[in-house]
């Protein structure tokens, strides 16, 4: 790495500059929607209707956030959301990495059956009703377990991790085996530490998925105030007319419109649900941006 300073050719320099320019343009283009949401969330909700808020609030206010935090159920929701995110992510990582390791072993006999069995689950679902009835029969309705247990295995995550493991030198495992380590130990002691970048990525996917989901709360735990999640509580505040096309009752629509949250509150909700995840991000990011040298681990 230290050799780069004297190594730059003219072409390299052009490439570098062009690269910085392109990436800067991408940053500008992609930062806009979020800043826009942020600006609107701090703008007076009546004033927002006039439009034309871009990067900066026109009439600054904290009222939108005060309104949101005025809902007491948010705190319970927040706790449950964190709990499900942590537990769901840990369980999901465990299952996906174990399965990925098993599949990455070329000498595993049932790997074709297992990978097909897994892959198919990505493309079908029995549908809402049978799943609901299954959960009822397993007594999962109205429990915390319904958030983390049914989705423990995600085939997508398994295959992504396996593709990473496939790229690791196989020789590492063989030498460990010669040293008398069993398969679980090899997985745990040798493979897992090498997989940090991909595990961090999958952890991010799992955490965001868990954090953002509200539909399971809605279907299975809506009548359990002690088990509702932050997202679900915020969905309650959100407008209820987005898909009103099925309704033809003008009176009802009028009543509902009175309950519609103003744009600014919606944006503040977006910020409230996104920020906790953004806080986690830097901790995971160093694994897949920082870069790690395999060589160091190898020796």
């Amino acid at each position: 790495m230290s050799s780069k300073a004297f190594n730059l050719t003219r072409g390299e320099r052009v490439f570098s500059i062009a690269n910085y320019v392109v990436l800067t343009i991408i940053v500008i283009a992609t930062v806009y929607p979020f800043l826009n949401v942020l600006a609107i969330s701090f703008n007076d909700s009546v004033d927002t209707v006039r439009g034309g808020i871009y990067l900066w609030p026109r009439e600054f206010t904290l009222e939108n956030y005060e309104t949101i935090f005025g809902y007491k159920s948010l705190l319970t929701g927040f706790k449950i959301s964190i709990l499900r995110t942590v537990i769901g992510t840990v369980l999901g990582l465990l299952s996906a990495s174990m399965l990925a390791y098993v599949l990455s072993r070329p000498d595993f006999r049932s790997s074709k059956f297992l990978s097909t069995f897994l892959a198919l689950t990505m493309y079908f679902s029995g549908g809402m009703v049978p799943i609901y009835i299954l959960f009822r029969d397993l007594n999962l309705l109205g429990t915390f377990a319904v958030y983390v247990l049914p989705g423990i295995v995600s085939a997508f995550n398994v295959f992504v991790i396996r593709s990473f493991m496939d790229g690791l030198p196989y020789a590492l495992q063989e030498s460990a085996k010669l040293d008398g380590a069993n398969d679980f130990k090899i997985f745990y002691k040798i493979i897992l530490p090498l997989c940090k970048p991909v595990l961090a990525t999958i952890a991010l996917f799992l955490a965001v998925g868990q954090w953002n989901s509200w539909f399971d709360t809605y279907l299975y735990n809506g009548n359990k105030p002690s088990l509702t999640t932050l997202q679900y509580e915020l969905m309650k505040i959100l407008d209820s007319t987005q898909q009103g096309s099925a309704m033809t009752n003008a009176n009802d629509l009028a009543n509902k419109m009175a309950q519609v949250s103003p744009e600014s509150i919606k944006m503040a909700i977006t910020i409230v649900v996104t920020v906790p995840i953004l806080v986690v991000y830097p901790f995971l990011q160093r694994y897949f941006v920082g870069g790690m040298t395999l060589g160091a681990v190898k020796s």
């Binding site: 299952s95 399965l99 689950t121 679902s125 029995g126 049978p130 799943i131 299954l134 295995v153």
Partner: peptide, 15 residues
């Protein structure tokens, strides 16, 4: 995990 998938993904296919 195979059992898990069977219960939560394959079994509801009766739907």
């Amino acid at each position: 995990f195979v059992i898990w998938l069977f219960v939560f993904n394959y079994y509801p296919i009766w739907g």
